[in-house]
Write a protein that binds this DNA or RNA. Structure first.
Lengths: 103, 103
DNA sequence: ACAATAAGTCAGAAAATTATGACTACTAAT
DNA sequence: ATTAGTAGTCATAATTTTCTGACTTATTGT
């Protein structure tokens, strides 16, 4: 018995990879806050209620690896790091807007 | 010590709920196939390589609960079920298109 | 040299998601 | 009444993701 229907595997869905990049437990919030202002690790930890260092660190690194965020070292008073939205990151804004409009 | 930054909890991110609806392991594929034709349970199981009954059943039910899919009983030869994209479901098509274009 | 601040890392625990295989429910045809 | 086909459910197991708390690294100011 055969079907003539398309058989897909988990990697052939083009939207899925991107969706996966955005769907960690805290990534949507990270993204949303990044749209408003550059992010700092320690304040993210406070701002996102219930989050934790480890998961945030991994999420930030992943968002950086795919070039949605850029990690910038600020050599000042207390040295710190800022995560900025890249141009690629900004290209997601309309997608999020559209998602929100379907609420 | 206080900050004046916005503090968010996991429910206040409007895009996140929707994102979550779309990000089960198989939901993007389910959605993508539903755009092409009505879905039947048993052929979905074959079409989506590596998937399983339980998870597909739950995913279909959830997509139905939020009205992205409609479950229709077809009383015919071998009685069966068809899952159809609703109008609300169709409104996601441009979102997916946009996601794909960022690949 | 020493303390303070920021930004993490690491190993192990806990929680959430997904998978497996046996079993059930409904209908239609024989 | 029995069988066959479709669409599931259920309990449990395996896997993946997230969380916790202790520890590390780097830089600046005293």
């Amino acid at each position: 018995m055969t079907t003539n229907k398309e058989i897909v595997d988990n990697e052939t869905c083009p939207a899925q990879a991107l969706l996966k990049l955005l769907s960690g437990k805290w990534k949507p919030e990270i993204f949303r806050l990044a749209v408003e202002a550059p992010l700092r690790f320690s304040s993210l930890l406070h701002q996102i209620e219930g989050s934790n260092k480890q998961t945030l660190a991994v999420a930030l690194r992943e968002l950086e690896e795919v070039s949605f965020l850029e990690r910038i070292v600020i050599k000042q008073k207390p040295l710190h790091i800022e995560y900025h939205l890249t141009e690629k990151g900004k290209s997601l804004i309309p997608v999020f807007k559209q998602l929100e409009s379907l609420g």
